[in-house]
Design a protein around this nucleic acid. Structure first.
Lengths: 196, 196
DNA sequence: GTCTATAAATAGATAGAC
DNA sequence: GTCTATCTATTTATAGAC
């Protein structure tokens, strides 16, 4: 929520910056590059954003809002734990496919974004993401579907990292569709890779 | 392999730089900070290394050499595919525990390290790491132990990311030992999280 | 709303004294 | 082998004309 709530140029800055941040890293991307990608000179950026950090913040805030909207839809369905876990896997993969740059920034720079002053709302969103997964896992344990000998947090972190890091290798244009990846991912984590 | 093959200070620079690179990122770490951590002034760094990038290269080269040494030990054992896969999981987790900073740099900056000129030997090492996993997976498929409906590369990437990213959350000082994590990790990926 | 011009700080790296 | 001093380039951000 900067000075002009929305405009074509404002959106172009966010879009171009996200691509650059994902490819080169936030720190290695200069405001001049962001400006060039948006078709303006660097001084003009400061009409839309107070600083380079403010651009990063806006990108991540929007991204987390969209992600949490999808997660809330998934847990609103009254299906069993296995279906809901698959729903979270699929929602995450679809989000990564729809917003790969933002997902990559989220993976690469989250640690530093959380630490820095003013990162409280990001921290809160990240916590809600985690809690959504843990609730589904706990539900599956309580209903006797999931194993009790694996700590829920450990399982959560394993599947979380495996799912999200797919943004680094999954190619939507290939012959292996995202729906298949979602099914394979759920099946490996729930049924295992050994033949029964 | 810089000018003085080895010295206390040389080692101190590598150690301090690894910690800083892991915590702040390579780009955000200045040569002055590296020098301060090693107890010298920035000018003195250039007696040991030609550039900041040369420090990063040396850290990653040593790390990958140590990792591949462990991997070669694992695949040299003539056990079945399940045991060898567990061996790779355990070797990776132990490496991450022994060299957490280097592992974090490997995860965060590998993409950029590979791309830049002179990164061919790193690329070759990364390829050998991948091939080690794929060989074990292929062996398990051929011997009828692993599923054939999941693409080997997909399974490799899922378990690879889950295992390596544990460096971001695993705490060696906690009550959950690394050996248990290795067992849980192997079991989740091979047997699944659902109760049988 | 965009540009020009530039301020102010910081970066990697070098030269030479000690 | 280390430090002092500094060069050169780059970076974020600002001020003010248009």
């Amino acid at each position: 929520m900067s000075v002009p709530a929305e405009s074509v140029r404002y959106a172009a800055i966010l879009r171009g910056a996200a691509e650059l941040f994902a490819r080169k890293g936030v720190r290695s991307t200069t405001v001049r590059e962001i400006a060039e990608a948006a078709g303006v000179l660097s001084g003009s950026l400061y009409h839309y954003f107070a600083s380079k950090d403010a651009i990063v913040d806006e990108i991540m805030t929007r991204y987390l809002r969209a992600l949490l909207d999808r997660y809330r839809e998934v847990v609103a369905t009254d299906s069993d734990a296995r279906a809901r876990l698959h729903g979270l896997v699929a929602a995450s993969l679809e989000t990564a496919k729809a917003a790969p740059h933002q997902t990559l920034i989220y993976q690469n720079e989250l640690r530093r974004l959380r630490q820095r002053p003013g990162g409280e709302h990001i921290k809160a969103a990240v916590h809600e993401v985690q809690q959504t997964w843990l609730d589904v896992i706990e539900d599956g344990r309580a209903s006797g579907v999931f194993r009790r000998d694996i700590p829920p947090r450990v399982f959560y972190r394993l599947i979380r990292d495996a799912v999200w890091l797919s943004v680094k290798w999954f190619r939507p244009e290939g012959s292996y569709p995202i729906e298949q990846l979602a099914r394979d991912c759920t099946s490996v984590f729930l049924d295992g890779f050994v033949l029964n």
